[in-house]
Design a protein around this nucleic acid. Structure first.
Lengths: 211, 211
DNA sequence: TGTACATCAGTGAACGCGCGTTCACTGATGTAC
DNA sequence: TGTACATCAGTGAACGCGCGTTCACTGATGTAC
């Protein structure tokens, strides 16, 4: 059972993961476009040339990091939609749960959050596209969730997607604000985030009032 | 009247501006943290060592660029608040004017917009702080504008600032989306931005309904 | 199970290159008289 | 207005350094019989 992967493949994957981990850590204090291949291999303790066994260049490694980061974020998103979807409470409780999940995610994955926030508009085209695609996908999932809720009766597709994008963008922005918050001030950021969600929720409820 | 600045000072300023312009252009395709001093001086056509007559290092130049970029943005913001403040129309017209101003700004200052979007979460601490400070200041101005409007009666300070931050963040996000939009799709982005402002406006109007 | 050969993740030396920074300099501009 | 000296923006040579990439290699793991 443990030899579904040969020793060789297992060792290769371990090195690859070590490269990703080292890069993510180094990226806490710089951008991808200034991170060097030798910097990463040095941190792992392998020869610079070993890098090429795993990635074509740093942009390639960056795209792999996007997949890793947004995979873990996706897990959180699904949990969030589940919490949102149980219909037990329409307002305050859902908002609190959402913000609490974001806070927890940032606490457990600070480096991933920083990486996404930084490279979303960063200097490496391939990575920017990869992040943009993933976030668009998240917005779709949120939209699909919204579509099934009674509050969305009468909404057209475009409006729902717009709403979903606002929620996704708000999550990313909140996560990034939490990172930059001075230690001990996370609670203030969370309070602000809840207020903003409340405003969005109000807008949503009155969206169809005027026509 | 033209010799308020000596020939020497005038020439120095011209070189300094040339360095800023060249850097801004080079930054369209990379991040500040990977932009080299020699790259910038080469683009201007001066010796690498001339750089030190104007800036301590690239981070220093970056902070100067923030000031330049957000100065022009501030001009736009003031125009925007003026358009918002005349009270002639509370809804659709104001929203359209706001989005139109953002579209015009992005068209005339694309490199500045890209720079701010990219370095807001970028790898250079001093530049990140400079941008953060300026945006907080903008939020204050927007808040002060809101405070004087009838719609804000009964709002407390924190809520108003939160609302102002949402508007400022939304502007930055819209500007950055416009940049990334495929040619010809700017109109779609503008439509989305207007819808989002409409949602925020609805939330604002019903903010005090529940208590 | 044992043997002979193939695969391939990681090595280490070598390369040419552009980087940031130092330094003493030059010559146009500015200032004092 | 003219002269003598001071200032200082921009120069150009030189430096040591770390970079990305190439190449032939090694030796553990995998495979066929």
């Amino acid at each position: 059972m443990s030899h579904t992967l040969g020793i060789r493949q297992a060792q290769k994957q371990k090195t690859r993961q070590a490269l990703l981990d080292a890069a993510l850590q180094l990226l806490e204090e710089q951008s991808l476009s200034s991170l060097g291949l030798r910097e990463v291999t040095r941190a792992v303790g392998v020869a610079p040339t070993a890098f090429y066994r795993h990635f074509r260049d740093m942009a390639d490694l960056g795209v792999a990091l996007v997949e890793e980061a947004l995979d873990s974020l996706h897990t959180t998103l699904v949990a969030l939609l589940a919490a949102t979807g149980d219909g037990k409470d329409d307002g305050e409780e859902r908002i609190a749960a959402t913000v609490e999940l974001i806070v927890a995610y940032v606490r457990t994955h600070p480096a991933h959050v920083r990486f996404i926030a930084r490279e979303q508009h960063g200097g490496v085209q391939a990575v920017r596209s990869a992040i943009g695609d993933q976030l668009a996908l998240f917005a779709q999932e949120v939209k699909d969730q919204f579509a099934g809720e009674p509050d969305s009766a009468g909404w057209d597709e475009d409006d729902l997607l717009m709403l979903a994008r606002m929620y996704v963008d708000h999550m990313v922005m909140t996560a990034s604000s939490l990172l930059e918050a001075a230690p001990g001030t996370e609670q203030r950021v969370a309070v602000g985030a809840r207020r903003q969600l409340r405003l969005l929720s109000l807008g949503r409820h009155h969206w169809l009032d005027e026509r």
